[in-house]
Amino acid sequence: MTIEIREVLKVFLDPAKGSDTVALQEVSLSIGQNEFVVLLGPSGCGKTTLLNLVAGFDFPTAGSVLVGGRAVNGPGPERGVVFQSPNLFPWLSAYDNVLFGPRVRGQDLAGGARRATALLSLVGLAGFEGHRPHELSGGMQQRVAIARVLMNDPDILLADEPFASLDEHTRRAMQEEFLRIWEQTRTTVVFVTHNIEEAIYLADRIVVMSRRPGRVKAILPVDIPRPRDRTSAGFVELTRKALELIQPEVTV
């Protein structure tokens, strides 16, 4: 499914302070079917805000967000979201977390049960079905969150810095895993990160955002064939380019 973001403006009003925050300004972006797009930008530049507009958690102040040609008017199961923190339901086991989607959608649970088990092993959690979130490490919880979303067969996967809180080795392993899953499912992906290496490793296209108010500063196509070698000349060259674009946007 395609995503069209047209001339989006997003202003947050704070009636208490009487001050407005312009989080996004004149953001336009087209994302094609099955494309893997990474939003890259410094902290506070509006990445989460933009993702929330596509997810339907929030609405633009001006401009429009179209998914599959229709204006987004709320969240829906065809747009799965993986949040920065796993956000699992803590009273449900990993298995029941994964089955949450089919349950609320009133779907056939007999097939769902088999599929949930299969998805949990797809994300490397075979044998952990009965574990509750607090019995799993952060990385394992995030994998349950991914399986929970995949269970709905979404057309679009929205991921907001899903691996940011993981250690470097786990993060790289998760990136590989995420790509493997994407190659199997071929959903459209919008993946937010502030990590340049992660962006280049994953993306078909990197959308570099400016500091607040967030705009699209540049678009970097990544033409390196997968699996990508993080130490190859092409990778390093692109890292340098991205750094040059990002550095002036970082304010301390």
């Binding site: 490397g124 959690l125 786990t170």
Partner: peptide, 20 residues
């Protein structure tokens, strides 16, 4: 309800369960 092994699938090394 209990894992049969302390690891996840072969493709993915489960992190140690110290937090668990």
């Amino acid at each position: 309800r209990m894992p049969t092994t302390s690891e996840g699938s072969a493709t993915f090394r489960a992190e140690p369960l110290s937090e668990a």
